[in-house]
Computed example of a mutant assay.
Amino acid sequence: MEFLAAGLSPLAVAAAMAVALLAGFVKGAVGFAMPLIMISAFSAFLPADLALAGMMLPTLVTNLSQAFRQGWGPALETTRTYRRFLIATVVFIAVSAQVFDLIPRVAYLLLLGLPVTAFAAAQLAGVPLALPLHHRVRAEWTLGVIGGLYGGISGIWGPPLLVFLLSTGVPKTEMVRAQGVVFLIGAVALLAAHLGTGLANPSSLTFSALLVIPAQIGMWAGFKLQDRLDQARFRRWTQALLVLTGLNLVRQALM
């Protein structure tokens, strides 16, 4: 097959499928972290370009399921509500994808990992970090730009959105749906951008398509857990996972 011809062993493919299954489960449970888990794990045994390409189709398909889980109406309303974040993210994914191989990896990992860790840890510790209503529009544009810049380079644009949603106290169902909508449109933009750069090609996309199956299976299992979590527990799980996410980004930078 294409990805085997590109140099991947059957063991590496099996390991990637196991990672996709785990990432799908976590995403189904809390609504995010699939790209973070996949990129973090893939970096141990895959080239950087194949790691980024490999997560593109699983991310796109699982976000489609997440965004439209309650139907078209709520998904379209969420799109309208978070349109500023979406516009900024899509535009800056396209911009930053063009310099994918020019940005030092350590720089973007630290610049994202440190503030995300500090924010989520403060929320876990009970420090109130609610965003005043009159700052929300400005914050939405700013965090959308940041998410887009990181998204085109690393395939990770979730943490800035999580910071915004946690700061504004969004209910669980809307929070998960908003992540699905934003991540879906971002995933389409990322794929389109890297079809242009050549990083997404028949070989890498064949590998990525194989990972859709375990990712989707994991996600449906995660949905079952999410449905049993009340609002308070869901928020705590989200904050805790965001702390681990930030620390992992810092760890990768220091290594």
Rank of each mutant, 00 (worst) to 15 (best):
R228C: 02
V106A: 14
A253W: 09
A189K: 05
L190A: 14
M1T: 14
G196L: 08
I37Q: 04
A139M: 15
A253F: 01
P214T: 02
G158L: 09
N201Y: 02
M219R: 12
A121M: 11
P74D: 09
V181K: 08
G31L: 05
L244M: 11
V243C: 07
P128E: 09
G144A: 02
A16N: 05
A12Y: 00
F207Q: 07
T245F: 07
L131P: 06
M34D: 10
G151P: 08
A88T: 06
A221P: 08
R228S: 14
Y108P: 06
V30S: 09
V19W: 00
L86F: 08
F32T: 08
L133K: 14
Y150P: 05
P47H: 15
P47M: 11
G151Y: 05
L242W: 00
P202A: 03
H135T: 10
G73R: 15
G28I: 00
P47S: 15
I39P: 06
G126S: 08
I37D: 06
A97C: 11
A240R: 01
R235T: 13
V181W: 05
W157Q: 07
I185M: 13
G54N: 04
V19P: 07
V61D: 07
E2W: 12
Q70N: 13
D101I: 01
W141M: 05
V243K: 05
L249D: 06
